[in-house]
Design a protein around this nucleic acid. Structure first.
Lengths: 352, 352
DNA sequence: GGTTGAATTGGAAACGTTTCCACATTGCGG
DNA sequence: CCGCAATGTGGAAACGTTTCCAATTCAACC
């Protein structure tokens, strides 16, 4: 144990390609070719270089390589908050796929702040990251997306509609929130509900917009009184959701069913219901948008719209890798399905 | 919109420091000094350089700078799974602090696989990351920690006990799981419970070990039958936890209280209880280790051990920044407190 | 006005790669 | 036996910075 520090100092070894060249008795160019290309190197050189590299514990310096090759082996990932389970799983899956391909992933949280978004895009570009996965905080942040495009590095958009020039939509992984919301709403209408509230973050972003569209579409196609379709835009904070949900459930004509985004908002809504003494599902049917632990384990178990976050991350990584390799443009957009997982939180409304 | 592509091509601008030098009519050295040092540059040069840089939209190339300065402005973060809420919040908070300091964060998931851990440490080192935040998957993975040390770059350990040489403990952020578990256990014992089960991931890692120690300490100090202290080691998978919990709760002498890690395991335990028709807290008192949404929103709300994941992340980032700046070694370890948040899930056991 | 020292400045040498280019060396067909 | 293509090889030029060093300017002080 005592000699450890010395050995470590050795291992840190600044062994450079020049050292390898010297001990192998060849030129640096040959070493580089032997180690990378493999093309145009004699067996003798290959052997000697390998031996020398091994002996010296040579580790190529990515920084230097990057400078020369203009490629960093790193991609950026820009989301509002990696601690949000919705993003965490996406990030996790994307990282897994990218690592397989030998890439590192840089993450940054934007808190949906456009200025910060721009700053991080600039930072990514300054670091010459090879590409990026981005979930912009708003679909309208004009300046941000222009800067996005300016980088030259491929970008894949996560579940957003970023304005694009006519013929070149952004590569993107999208979730079919519209169809999901429509299915859920149709299901509730089928159970007899006529006053249904949709609690979702604002229409600033695609998921919210699509959900609202699907929600309304279900009412329209059922040909019932559309004033029963209550859209409540939310910030994604639990406290706020709870306050809003309380107000909603105190109305004289309170909704008999709620569809709530399953992160913080669902929690707030359930708390509100509990605080008002409303029993789920007897007094209030509930559908979670997104299948979280909370939804699955809650008593009663909450019926939920489910889509695979892992698939989103994986597909995004795949799309990005495609671009990076430049192998045929291939598919440019993926639309992932949403399923309704039936559980115990929805029943026909009690006649009143 | 049609001229956009051209403008973008311009913005991509390979404007290099040489260009700036030329248009400013000074040498590259002066540009570098003007832009960075600020020291020893005349106002004239400073002005001209600033103007030229502005005009050309000059963005320094971090890669090149890194090569020269041997510093990348990036730190690595190695955890088993960023999608685990326990880590997600830590990562989020650490990233926030590091970004403030102008650093980017690279994340990688190890899935607690020692080989992968080593590979990622090597990758980080090859990329010359300035430092790293690491939560090793095991406290015993000898080889990994040696390689850790070998890098020369500072490392901060997240809530683990990594073997160290006598006089140089690793900088680390630790959570006082022992005291937390002891408090929780004491509380249950105080309520009258005598058979209590602790469901936590194995003793391979510090948090589990410490919790078990605290759990047993509470029994010891209460001077009651220690066979009532049931330690159930778990993998952190919900299904597995549920199966185990089922077996546990079916015992003839089933525990009257459970302390369960609040991620997947708590969910599994609650499901198991529900499946067996056991009511919380009447038939079973429950304490969650870690205060998650699930614990807070569950009906009944689950009493929980709480510590601040944000503080862990922030403190870790702070410790790392300290090392990076080399400003006085300062504190090398942080021990964060754990509180017991009383809710509705614990009552005295029903006489039986 | 010359001397000195500080403040600025330009030029060039790193940093560690990859890649281009020119040159040897080979093998082969004519 | 003579080109000639194919193959391997070494040397050097990038890549875009920072930083060292020597040279120049400038002011101030004797």
């Amino acid at each position: 144990m005592s000699i450890m520090p010395l050995r470590m100092a050795e291992i840190v070894s600044k062994a450079t390609i020049r050292d390898v060249a010297r001990t192998a008795g060849v030129s640096v160019g040959s070493v580089s070719r032997a180690l990378n290309g493999g093309k145009n190197v004699s067996v003798r050189v290959a052997r000697d270089v390998a031996a020398a590299a091994e002996k010296l514990g040579y580790q190529p310096d990515f920084q230097a390589r990057s400078l020369r090759t203009r490629t960093t082996g790193m991609v950026g990932c820009l989301v509002s908050d990696v601690a949000n389970p919705l993003y965490a799983s996406i990030v996790q899956a994307a990282e897994a796929r990218l690592r397989e391909a030998g890439l590192l992933m840089v993450v940054a949280n934007t808190a949906n702040d456009p200025a910060r978004e721009r700053a991080m895009v600039a930072a990514f570009r300054g670091r010459r990251l090879d590409g990026m996965l981005v979930a912009p905080g708003s679909d309208e942040n004009d300046r941000a997306w222009r800067e996005l495009a300016a980088g030259g590095a491929p970008v894949v958009i996560l579940d957003r509609d970023v304005p694009h020039e006519e013929d070149r939509p952004w590569p993107a992984v999208l979730v079919d929130h519209r169809e999901g919301a429509r299915t859920a709403t149709r299901y509730l209408i089928g159970l007899g509900h006529r006053r249904i509230a949709l609690l979702t973050p604002g229409a600033r972003m695609r998921p919210g917009r699509e959900r609202i569209a699907g929600f309304k579409a279900a009412f329209a196609e059922a040909d019932i009184d559309p004033t029963g379709a209550l859209v409540c835009l939310q910030e994604s904070s639990m406290d706020f959701a709870q306050g809003d949900a309380l107000a909603l459930l105190r109305r004289s004509q309170r909704p008999t069913a709620i569809i709530a985004l399953g992160t913080r908002i669902l929690a707030g809504a359930l708390r509100a219901a509990r605080d008002l003494g409303l029993s789920v599902p007897r007094d209030l049917s509930v559908i979670s948008v997104g299948d979280t632990d909370l939804a699955a384990v809650h008593t009663p178990a909450i019926t939920a719209l489910r889509w695979s976050l892992e698939d989103v991350g994986r597909a995004a990584a795949e799309l990005l890798l495609q671009r990076l390799r430049g192998t045929g443009e291939g598919q440019s957009r993926a639309l992932l399905p949403v399923d309704l997982v039936l559980r115990e939180s929805c029943v026909p409304p009690t006649a009143k």
